[in-house]
Computed example of a mutant assay.
Amino acid sequence: MTTLSGGPTDDQITDDDLITSWGLFHEALSATMPILLRGIDPCGRDMSGPWFEVMIRLQRSPDNRLPMSQLAREVSLSSGGFTKLADRLERNGFLVRQSCPSDRRVTYAALTPEGLELAEQARAKHVALLREHVLGVLGSEGIHSLADHARKLRDNSREIA
């Protein structure tokens, strides 16, 4: 039995097919990520770690801020790891911590004007790299399919966790 697209059904996918597919996805991500982050810091600072993901998430959030615990979770960092990164971003003047007026247990990470400017500059370079190395390879249909599949995997993982 095959699917409408002519591909194998779920019960025809072998263990090796499954392992190979997941391995290729992992290899593709590992090989592509450094290319997509190449030169995105317009000031040439060595800000290692997931700083860019933090900056972009804040830049795309209302009021350019998110609860620190949510942000740490979204960028897959432990609480301690995120605190160290936030400290470094704060020392560089890109981020401030803000208390939540309605819940003292919540602390927000918020971009400073300098952080917003850096995030916007880095984002522009990153988008150019995405267009070249992802959209140029996958095409628009592939991009939509990739987003759909990634969303399904993410949402399923959240339901299990």
Rank of each mutant, 00 (worst) to 15 (best):
E132Y: 07
G80A: 11
L77C: 12
E132K: 15
C100T: 15
G142Y: 08
G115M: 08
L89A: 07
M33H: 14
L77I: 10
V96S: 14
E114S: 15
E27C: 05
D15A: 04
R60G: 01
S5T: 11
L36V: 04
R88T: 08
G142C: 09
E117N: 05
A72F: 04
F25W: 11
G7L: 15
M55D: 03
R45H: 12
L18D: 14
R154F: 15
E90M: 12
H133C: 07
R123K: 08
A28N: 04
E90L: 02
E74V: 01
D63W: 06
G139Y: 06
C43V: 00
A109R: 00
F82V: 00
V106F: 09
M47R: 15
H149E: 13
E27A: 14
P62Y: 04
A72K: 00
V127C: 07
D46M: 00
L95T: 06
K84V: 04
P50I: 06
A119H: 03
T107H: 12
P67R: 13
G115R: 14
D17Y: 11
S140C: 01
D16W: 15
L146P: 05
G6L: 07
E53N: 06
E90C: 10
R158C: 02
A147C: 12
L146G: 05
L116N: 10
D155T: 05
P42F: 12
R60C: 02
T83K: 14
A72D: 04
K84M: 02
G136D: 09
P113T: 01
T20P: 01
C100G: 10
T14V: 05
A119M: 04
I40A: 09
R97F: 05
R154T: 10
F82W: 07
L37R: 15
V127H: 05
L153N: 06
L118Y: 09
G142N: 05
G39L: 12
E159Q: 11
D41C: 14
Q121S: 13
Q98N: 06
A161Y: 00
H133K: 07
R60K: 09
L95Y: 06
V137P: 03
L66Y: 13
P8L: 00
S76L: 07
L18V: 15
E114V: 14
E53D: 15
S61R: 12
G115D: 11
C43S: 01
E74T: 03
N156Y: 10
L116T: 03
W51S: 09
A28H: 04
H26Q: 14
D16N: 12
S157L: 14
A128W: 14
L89P: 03
L135W: 15
E74G: 08
D10G: 11
E132D: 08
D155L: 10
D10W: 09
G44Q: 04
S21R: 09
G136F: 10
L146S: 06
D41P: 07
F52L: 09
P67K: 08
P8D: 00
R104V: 08
V75Q: 12
S61T: 03
R60D: 03
R158S: 02
L146E: 08
D148G: 00
I19D: 06
G81H: 05
C100K: 15
R154V: 12
A31S: 14
Q59T: 00
N92W: 01
M68R: 05
N92L: 10
T112E: 10
G136N: 09
I40N: 07
P42N: 12
L146Q: 12
L29K: 07
